[in-house]
Amino acid sequence: MASTTVIQAGAAPARPAARRPPPERSAALVIPASAFMLFAYAIPLLLLLIASVRTPGGISIMPFVDFLSDPFNWSIIWNTLRIALITTAVALILGYPMAFALNSAKGWVLGLLLISLILPLSVGVVIKAFSWQILLSSNGIVNLTLQALHITDGPIRLIFTETGLVLGAVNVFLPFMVLPIYSVIRLIDRDLTSAAACLGAGPLTQFLRVTLPLSMPGVVVGVAFVFSMSVAMYVIPGLLMGDRFQTLAQVIGRSYLLLRNESLGSTVSVILLLIAVSVVVASDRLVRRLRTVQ
């Protein structure tokens, strides 16, 4: 029976190669998007890179040396990375099971879950940040709940803390963690976990040896998305932490908008860009490696 299935599968007619568009025609399809990206992204990026090394004495890396030789600036880099890492980790912890819930849901429940995940994306970041400010206030629902559950005796300060910032950021970025993971695990063949069970694997072993490795490409993409966005977030820290918490994005904004220091702004922009690109490149390599292993 099994061999029959294999033969039938093998006998399935392959799509005729002649019906595929020739490579040059496929390449033509990307020309509009490429042209747009060239003018809207590549050229401005090149100008940014030039501005970051342009000094009164000519081209030099001294702006980078000056910025990175100041210990205070390292604390800003650390602030930026720490919040991005924590936000990404919390989003992963919350988003991973949610992706499985989506995968197992059907009918109107699936629709409801997807709407509840995607619809909040249409609400602006500023509105979300202000909403969290209300929720986290002394008389807000979070403090009232903590007191009702006798976890705290009185209101605790949550607004303008890193906890509040992470909560707000996770709220904004969670869909970007859930959707890539969901798109991967919905393609996992459920027969694989059944086969593992037949071979004696318990639920935990099935998850750790089968499901988790197969879902990793989605996890890596989700982590890359959320980290890239949270490392560069500007509005959310400004509203939920105020001016006492400096991140690279805020230094960039201030350099251009207030200090009119194009050199500092472009230097910090390039540093932030390098951090984000490093994460994306590392994620891409990890995905390729996982595919090779699988």
């Binding site: 202000f130 400010q133 209300i134 206030s137 002394s138 008389n139 607004i159 303008f160 400004g238 509203l239 932490m241 105020g242 001016d243 006492r244």
Partner: peptide
Amino acid sequence: NLLSIYTQLTQAFNLTAQGE
């Protein structure tokens, strides 16, 4: 004594109006 240092006056004003 600082709750926050603001750049957005409207936000700071709202927090004061709410009693925060």
